[in-house]
């Protein structure tokens, strides 16, 4: 595959709710295997942006084109709903902050992981189950838990299950909305490490929305800082964090608690 072309091209993307700005004039390219962190405080528009990019929301203006597996660029907001939904369950993943939003809580862990396989036409129970066991292992969930419902899982386990459910079809782009939010610190560390490993092993591109700069530093190579719906600073993650240029970024960085 041609890695000299971006996977996603976003140009002047804006979303407004009446007169209120969700996000405004966002432009960037994302390359295969690249992890982009979008940071900012609550209300900065980072989640609106994520929802627009993942086509869960329609932007007010602007374009986003995605390079499909056949190499052609497709304008996301002009695709039919059927195509978009197919993309979302095959070539994309979406990891929600609250696992209950991304899991089926009333079916087993195995079925949660296997659903995407069945959705793309796998009709062999034994193979689906073997793949599910493999993926549970990769997110450090024992094979003996395969028939348990996610309700019986801890928060960290649920999040790991959500990740497995998303990655089972080998997506090329994963959206993450505060993937470690609401977890205990030790659980967070484990999850971050797991995500780092998976992202680099699978060569995933990811857009990670987080308000936690430490998470951004650990997971991403590039960073976009948002305030009031606009991108105020962008660049290499360590450059933005170690040499912040904009007043708001300096405020954010200086507000990190040191341990």
């Amino acid at each position: 595959m041609n890695d000299d072309l971006p996977l996603l091209r976003v140009s002047s993307l804006s979303k407004s709710y009446g007169s209120r700005i969700g996000c405004a004039d966002v432009t960037f390219d994302l390359w295969p295997g690249e992890v982009l962190a979008v940071v900012g405080e609550s209300g900065s528009g980072k989640t609106t942006l994520l929802n627009c990019l993942s086509t869960r929301l329609m932007p007010t203006s602007g374009t986003a084109s995605y390079r499909m597996r056949d190499g052609t660029f497709r304008e996301l907001y002009r695709m039919s709903e059927a195509e978009r939904r197919f993309l979302m369950r095959t070539d994309w993943g979406f990891v929600h902050q609250n696992p209950a939003d991304g899991l089926r809580m009333n079916v087993s862990a195995g079925a949660n992981v296997g659903e995407r396989l069945m959705a793309v036409g796998d009709r062999h129970y034994g193979r689906i189950r073997a793949t599910a066991i493999d993926w549970l292992g990769r997110v450090e969930i024992g094979a003996d838990r395969i028939d348990d419902e996610p309700r019986a899982f801890s928060g960290g386990m649920r999040q790991r299950l959500q990740i497995a459910r998303n990655l089972v079809t080998g997506p090329r782009l994963v959206f993450m909305d505060e993937p470690t939010g609401g977890l205990d610190v030790s659980v967070q560390a484990r999850l971050l490490d797991l995500l780092r490993g998976l992202v680099s092993d699978l060569g995933l591109a990811a857009i990670v929305v987080t308000h936690d700069l430490a998470v951004a530093r650990l997971l991403s190579q590039r960073m976009m800082v948002m305030k009031d719906g606009r991108v105020v600073e962008t660049g290499l993650t360590d450059r933005v964090l170690d040499d912040p240029r904009e007043p708001y970024t300096q405020l954010l960085v200086s507000s990190i608690l040191q341990v």
């Binding site: 709903e81 059927a82 939904r85 369950r89 089926r104 079916v107 087993s108 195995g110 079925a111 296997g114 659903e115 995407r116 069945m118 959705a119 793309v120 009709r123 129970y125 689906i128 189950r129 395969i146 028939d147």
Partner: peptide, 20 residues
Amino acid sequence: KMHALEEYGLMHVKLYEDIA
């Protein structure tokens, strides 16, 4: 919407649960 778009993976989830 699922009927309209022929998204029937969920039916097999139900059968999967049965076998499991």
